[in-house]
Every structure is written in C-alpha cells, then in structure tokens.
Design a protein around this nucleic acid. Sequence first.
DNA 1: GTATGTTTGAAACAGATGTTTGAATTATTA
DNA 2: TAATAATTCAAACATCTGTTTCAAACATAC
Lengths: 210, 210
Amino acid sequence: MAQNDTVTRILDAAEVLFAEQGFAETSLRTITAKAGVNLAAVNYHFGSKKALIQAVFARFLGPFYKLIEVSLDNHEKQYPDSVLSIEDILKFVARAMANVTEGDRNRLAIFMRLLGLAYNQGQGHLRKFLQTEYKTLYRRVMALIARATPELQPVERYWRFHFMLGAAAFTLSSMEHLRAIVEHDFNTKCTEEEVVGYLLPFLAAGIRAK
Amino acid sequence: MAQNDTVTRILDAAEVLFAEQGFAETSLRTITAKAGVNLAAVNYHFGSKKALIQAVFARFLGPFYKLIEVSLDNHEKQYPDSVLSIEDILKFVARAMANVTEGDRNRLAIFMRLLGLAYNQGQGHLRKFLQTEYKTLYRRVMALIARATPELQPVERYWRFHFMLGAAAFTLSSMEHLRAIVEHDFNTKCTEEEVVGYLLPFLAAGIRAK
DNA sequence: GTATGTTTGAAACAGATGTTTGAATTATTA
DNA sequence: TAATAATTCAAACATCTGTTTCAAACATAC
C-alpha cells in the first residue's frame, strides 16, 4: 500500500514538473519535495532518473495503446471492409488520447512533449523505448491513412504524416503558453477541446492538399 | 581579431551542441572544449550561459529578420496594394530561411530545433526574448496571413499559424532522422528542398481548411 | 512475539555545473 | 618603446546534481 502510494505520488509529481520545466531542468529533489517523499525513494523504486522518465511515459503509453487498439478492433468488427476517412482516423486517435489524459488538463501536454522529445533527441533513450513499444500501432495507423489517401505517393504520405504529428506535438505540448497568449491578445479563453477542434480540420486538409 | 574569433568559435560550437542535446544538457565545458577556447571565455564575452543562448539565437534571427523585411518591402514597392496568397507568404519565409542557413545543410535543422526548444523548454526566457525582440516581424507576417485568409476568425487563424509553425519546426528539426527512415523504408533519398516542397502545400492547405 | 523482508529516513558521496578570481599574456595606443 | 587596455588561462569557488549508504521504522509471516 505505502509502496504503491509512494510510487504514484512520485509519478504524479514528476509528470507535472516535467511538463512545466522539461526533463533535465527538473531535479529529483524538486520531484520528491513536491511528492512529499524521501529523496532516495526515486532510486529505490525506479532505479534511476532515466527509468523514472520512461515510467512516466509508460503510464500514458500502455493505456493509450490498448484503448486505440480495442476501439479500432471494435470498429472493424462492426463495419468490416469499411474505409475510414482521414477525419475518422484522427477522431479515433483524438478520442483515445482524450480518454487517457482525462481528469488532468496537463496530461495531454506532457504526453505530447514526451512524444516530441522522443523524436527530436537524437541519441536519447526515449526514442528507442518509443519505437519498440509503438511499432505495431504505428504501422496499423499508417495503413489506415494509406487507404484513406490512395492518391498520395508513399514518400509524400510519409512526410505529410509527420507534418501532422509535428503540428500536433508542437502546439499541444506548449498549449499553456499559447493559450496564455490567446487570452492576452484576444481576450478569449480556449479550452483544450476547442484547440483540438481547430487542429483536426487543419491536419485533415493538410494531408489532402492539392 | 582574437576576440571576434573567440566569440565566433563559441557561437559555432554552441549552435551545434544546443541543437544536438538541448540547452540544459549542454555544459559550458563541452562548448568551450569543442570551440577550443578557455572555459572562462563564455562568461567574459557573453556574461552568462543564458546570454549565450540568446546570442546564438540572435545570430540567426538578426539576418533572417532583415532579409525578410527587405524582400517584403521590395515587393510592396513593386506591387503596391497587391494581396499576397498564403503560398506567396510561405515562399517569402522559406526563401529568407534558405538564404540565412545556406552554406551549411544542417543550419536549417539547427535553426528549427532551436525554435522548437525555445518554445517548450526552460522557464521561457527565450520565448519572451523572441516575443519582445521580433514582435514587429511577427505582426507583419500575421497581418499578411490575415489578408490572405479573411474568412478566418482571428483566434482560429492564430492557432492555425502555430500549427504551421509546429509542422515545420518538428519535421525540419529532425530531418536527418526522418530522412534516414525514408531511405530505409522507401529506398529513396530526399533532399532538403524536396522536403520543403512537400511541406509548403501541406501548410497552405491546412490554413485554408474548410 | 519473534524473526524476516520491505520500505523509509537523514546523511554523505562523488562528480558536474555556472561563475569568479587574479595573475599571465597579448593587443592597442600614445 | 613604454604605458595601458583587452583578453586568455589555470585554478578555485560555491552550489547543485543523481546516487549510495546504512540504520531506523514498518509490515508480514511463522
């Protein structure tokens, strides 16, 4: 009980702090202070800071993976041979993402930031962790997109997929900052759902360009 | 002579290392070792690490700023009252970017990675630096985009602008890695120009969605 | 209740970090 | 050339980093 509680509190604190400050900028002392646990607890329960970062990621990755797999399986059972549109595919992904991150507004941002870092940090440990863990899901989604955009050349489709990923990862990971600017410049507040509502049509139109 | 040389060598080394590893992950000792200068030189010439980071940025943004200003001025003189299309605006930006980073293939990626890092790393002193220092250029480009997309609501235009920025920053900053995958999966090599050639139509279609 | 294994706690560890210092070197100028 | 200013350099600075240690507290099973 106490063990599980300590682990959860560390993950919760680390999640928020990583999203606010980044990984290297967040020290274990800051995390354990926020979590209200002893400094040594991180190394005792996770082994290292690196392993903690992966554990924070895994807590998103696992449920997200299962959720989207199940929902795609269900849809294919219910409507076999149906060809999903780009909008449908994006909705599947967005819904799984929303379900995984629901409850805490910041969880979508850190998920996206982790995603971006895994892609960008050249020799980082996160990308390999992600690639091995995500490979089958990536291929499945890519196959769906290919069916939805048969007119595209494979190479251009590949790039457009990553343009989509980039637009999503970049904006959602720094959503707090961007929303603050919106509030200052336009005197309007944007909910997370509204931003996603803006995002999906942009992505769909982009991948269908020309 | 020696002064200027030292300053340049520090900036060159820092530029590459920041892009490879991030800001917090790159130590002054690594930078000065790569630059072949003494450790104290950074604090002597720049004052602090924070100031060095801003100086690295300024070296890109300064020329970029001037180049795009001049080319827009020229165009407006030559074709007064003309309304630029989104494609035209993107071409202006892309050409200025290409000119600023020309000579070194990696500088575009470095520039984009720095931009991405600036947006979602650290406590945001870089974001503020960017916002205050290049506010007029941002406003000018935004005004051009507004004229090209009169049907858009200001808030949605703002978000779509950052979707574009994200798609560009994310993909161009990890271009080496993404290109390697293309080569492996499709047996095709992509030049930098080809990727930009894929990118611009995607962005233009995205911001004009629906 | 005693013994066993698990978890916490305060303290220390070894190393890296940005920064400062003051003397030595180099460049500039009169 | 002599005086002055600018720059380099090795060393030390104080602080922060992730990690380890080992005794104390706790839980669990016999």
